[in-house]
């Protein structure tokens, strides 16, 4: 192979590899979105274009999609809200009630918007979460090595110890099997999870504790007491 041929072949091979990788990434994403709730495409249209809106090369950008830049309604939030506002999807719980924090999102800070926990392309774990749900999800950030005054010992399982109530479900495989009540295990199955006391949406700032009575938006309740003391159970 002569020199120029070799050089062109090299460039060609690199270009082909890059093209293949790019096409693979795009096709992979489309495959994930297709058939999910985020697939809002009409027949024959790729689902990408409704969010990755094609830029009109001839036109002037009207403005940035983030009209504020700072504050609770900034960053990617306006983008998510542009469908999750009661039109394309109903409003849910406290998610876009700007008077209540979304734990632990910090809108407008790169990597800390809704996409800190959710990925619209990820379908493996439910609710478009980026990682498996349950206690292990919370522990992606809330890992701890030393002693704690947290009422539930969230490191019990990894340390091989039982939680403070002395009872946990060895079959559960993670902290979600911890029981605070019904030590005999004959209760209604009120296994305590992180979400029993905490909520990422509509809870208290800092502690993310559920204290809110009933969301006016969808009637959902994240009341702290009622997550265990359910009327009629007699617990």
């Amino acid at each position: 192979m002569t020199g120029p041929t070799r050089a062109f072949a090299l460039v060609g091979v690199v270009a082909l590899v890059l093209l293949a990788v790019g096409v693979g990434v795009v096709l992979g994403e489309e495959k994930n979105v297709a058939g999910t709730k985020h697939d809002v495409a009409t027949e024959g249209t790729p689902p990408c274009v409704y969010c990755h809106i094609p830029r009109d090369a001839q036109g002037e950008l009207l403005y940035a999609r983030d009209p504020n830049g700072v504050g609770p309604y900034s960053g990617l939030k306006p983008f998510c809200f542009s469908c999750h506002d009661g039109t394309v999807a109903p409003l849910k719980s406290y998610i876009f009630d700007l008077t209540r924090p979304d734990h632990p999102a910090d809108p407008g800070v790169r990597g800390q918007d809704c996409t800190r926990c959710h990925d619209p392309h990820e379908t493996g774990y439910g609710k478009f979460l980026k990682l498996p749900g349950g206690a292990d999800f919370c522990r992606n950030c809330h890992f701890r090595a030393g002693p704690t005054d947290h009422p539930v010992d969230i490191d019990a399982l990894t340390a091989g110890r039982a939680p403070p109530d002395g009872h946990w479900d060895p079959e559960a495989g993670d902290f979600s099997g911890t029981r605070l009540w019904n030590a005999a295990g004959t209760g209604p199955g009120s296994f305590v999870k992180c979400l029993t006391c905490h909520s990422p949406h509509g809870s208290q700032p800092d502690t993310a504790i559920n204290t809110v009575a009933v969301s006016p938006l969808d009637g959902s309740s994240v009341s702290l007491c009622q997550s265990c003391h359910v009327s009629g159970r007699g617990d």
Partner: peptide, 13 residues
């Protein structure tokens, strides 16, 4: 039509 520029619409309401 769908777009992000003046004269197009991203999320008409």
């Amino acid at each position: 039509r769908l777009g992000g520029t003046a004269g197009t619409l991203s999320r008409p309401k």
